[in-house]
Every structure is written in structure tokens, then in C-alpha cells.
Design a protein around this nucleic acid. Structure first.
Lengths: 199, 199
DNA sequence: CGAGTTCTGGCCTGACTGGTCAACAACGCG
DNA sequence: CGCGTTGTTGACCAGTCAGGCCAGAACTCG
């Protein structure tokens, strides 16, 4: 009975995500969002509420997708240790360095907004905890598969690996070359995940 | 012959630093800066140029101070390994967690602005490189002092330690408790800086 | 065809943005 | 005491901000 929507909600969220990702929250105007999505202000506000709620929606979807992808990659990895290595090296896997410099929407948003928007901080924490959980599973599996020293406490190391990856992401934002970035990641990895033969 | 200034430049920069630190660049208005510094708009623009240049001035001074403090701490540390440990644990050294949640001005600014302001990215890179250099010195000294396994490549480990610290700072911004933060830092440290007895 | 419902896009507002500028004030020198 | 130089002030600018609102369009069902 009602008039049907002329846009696909997911496409709009995706387009808007790119803008927030590129410019940050405060530097993005509602006009930018209208242009990127092709929607009028009325449609945007009707469907998503104000800028703040729209941003939170984008961020949550981004995090959920990331978590899902990580789980899938772990499930389909031949060896769990490859998954962990790929996770830390992620930011340096770019021939041009453009995506490395762009960083991670979650990391960027947390740094910009955690103080003034508690819900962003909470969402970030939730997502990081989920990631750490996946990493814990991966490290446990890698231990069983004989690729990681059995003495390591998977839960403890998981957060250290996560911190290292966040650090690599942060360094990537400075424009550090992907080669240097990869060697930082590698340096952290070899020490955080000692092979079984090393004792 | 000229009319003397009625303000101390350093005090103004310090006051303004706090505002940028709390709110971020884009969310800070020139009005905020006037209120925080007590200066009129004309004085502010006359002394520092526009908002962008003022921010860069603040950031540079922040980084220089940080580097200087780090050098002093290393020079006066009884053992270099204590300095490195303190460096990584820094973000978790707060009883309330308020300063941990506030994060680091440099890290916040880089995440917010690296894409749109190349000079911020360059300044960040310069500062991180300087920090890594100090860390390299510290690790070499710790090796000589017998606190760190002589097999570690100080230069490689320095960047890994830096990345770990950046990660701890990022996690701190999510409101993670200082206790949890400290254990992440500790977990990373014990693996990145193995004691000599461990081989 | 008409009634009911939702969607759409643009207009409006009024507050706020970063930045400029001209008038005025405070000082040292001659 | 002027005079030149610089600092300070507040008014002012055009433009942008987020958000509210509404008249009309597009659709389904009766």
C-alpha cells in the first residue's frame, strides 16, 4: 500500500561508509552524504535518523562484516597460523600503499570520537573483543597443529597480536611504505608466535 | 617601539593543545580556541596564522616535548629495560583510566587527519621514527646490561615495541580498564623482549 | 478511480563556520 | 609630546552546518 523505496538500504550504507572512512565523522557534512548516496535529505533522515545514528549504523555494519570475514577466513585456512599471520600483515598487503594509508574505519573512528561519543567507544570495544576471541581460537588451533609453541597462553597472546596489528595500522596511516610496514608486522609476529622448535 | 604582547605564546599553545586533544581537529571551532586561550580572534590569527597552522604548531610542540622527555627518561634510567617497559605500559599508568581513554594527541590526530592533511602524516612519521630510534638505543643498552637476550635485533624489535604501544593506546581509547590494558602491555613485552636466560 | 500510506526532494531556518578588516590602544624612540 | 609600529578588539562577511518541514509524487489496496 505504501510508496516503495527507490533505493537499496545496503547500497546507501556502503556508499556512505566510504565517505565517513575517507573524511572522518566531523569533516563529513550531511550534504556529502546526500551526494554520495543520491538521496534527498528527507529520505536520509526518514530512513536512518540523524547523522550520529547513521554513522553508528555504518560502523556496526562495518564491524560485523569484518568479524564475519575473519571467521570465514579462519574456518577455511589450511593452517591457523597462516590466518594469524595474514591478520597482522593485512595492512601491508597493498601494492600502492593507498589502503594502508587509509587505515581502518574502526580504528580511525575510535581515535576521533571515543571521548565524545561513548557509544562509539563501546562499539569499538565490542568489536575488538570479538576479534581477540577469534584470534584466541586461531592461536589454540595453531598450537594443536604444531605451528606455535605449546607453552604460549593463547588468550594472552591474542590481545598482544591484536595490539600489534593496531600498531601496524596506525603506522600505515603515516604513509610508511608497505615494505617497512610488512617488516614491522613480521618482526612482531615472529616474537609473539614462537615456533615450537625454538625452546 | 611596538605594543607588547599581552599573552605568553607557550601558555596559549598549551591551552589550545588541550582543546584539540579533547575534541579533535574538525570538532574544535575557532571559538573554542578563543575561549580556551582568552585571546581575540585577531590576536590568534595574527600570532599563529589560520587554524591549520595553529594545529600543526601545537602538534609539533607536543611531539618535540615527548621526544625530549623520552630521551631524558632513558638517560636517567638505572636500567634501559625499565625505560622500555615503562614506555609500553605508559597508557595503562592511570588510576582512573581517564588519560588512557583520552589517548595520545599524535595518535588521535593521525587517525583523524592523515588522509586529508599530508603534513600531519609527515609530522607523525617523523615523530614515530624519532621514537623508534630512541627505542633502538634503549634496547641496545638493555642488551649490553644483560637484561635482554643478545640475539635480538634492536632495530627490528624497536618498531615492534612501538607498534605494540600504539596498539595499547588504541585499545585504551575504547575504555578498556587499566588492568586489562596493563596485562596486554605485559603480554607483548615479555615476548618482544625475551630475557637472556630463556634460550 | 479514490483513499490511505509512505517516500522524496527541496526549501527554510537560525545557528555557527573560518577568516578578514578597520578602528582603536599601548608602547619605545626621537 | 607626537609618531611609527605592533597588538587587540569586535564587528562583519559569505558560506556552511544539521536538522525540520511540507507539498506533492508514487504506489497498493479496496
Amino acid at each position: 500500500m505504501p510508496r516503495p523505496r527507490e533505493f537499496d538500504e545496503e547500497c546507501v550504507v556502503a556508499a556512505i561508509r566510504e565517505v565517513f572512512w575517507d573524511k572522518g565523522y566531523a569533516a563529513t557534512s550531511v550534504d556529502d552524504l546526500m551526494r554520495a548516496s543520491g538521496l534527498g535529505k528527507g529520505s536520509l533522515y526518514g530512513a536512518f535518523g540523524d547523522k550520529h545514528r547513521l554513522f553508528l549504523r555504518v560502523l556496526r555494519e562495518y564491524n560485523d562484516t569484518n568479524d564475519r570475514v575473519l571467521r570465514e577466513r579462519l574456518a577455511s585456512a589450511s593452517r591457523a597460523v597462516h590466518f594469524v599471520r595474514e591478520f597482522v600483515h593485512g595492512p601491508s598487503r597493498d601494492s600502492t600503499g593507498a589502503s594502508a594509508q587509509r587505515g581502518c574505519l574502526l580504528a580511525n573512528s575510535t581515535a576521533e570520537l571515543a571521548t565524545s561519543m561513548p557509544d562509539v567507544a563501546a562499539e569499538a570495544r565490542r568489536s575488538y573483543d570479538a576479534t581477540a576471541e577469534i584470534l584466541t581460537e586461531a592461536i589454540e588451533r595453531a598450537r594443536r597443529e604444531g605451528d606455535v609453541d605449546p607453552g604460549v597462553d593463547a588468550d594472552q597472546v591474542a590481545y598482544a597480536v591484536l595490539a600489534a596489528q593496531l600498531g601496524v595500522v596506525a603506522l600505515g596511516r603515516t604513509g610508511m611504505g608497505v615494505g617497512a610496514l610488512a617488516s614491522v608486522a613480521e618482526s612482531a609476529l615472529t616474537r609473539l608466535l614462537p615456533s615450537p622448535g625454538h625452546e
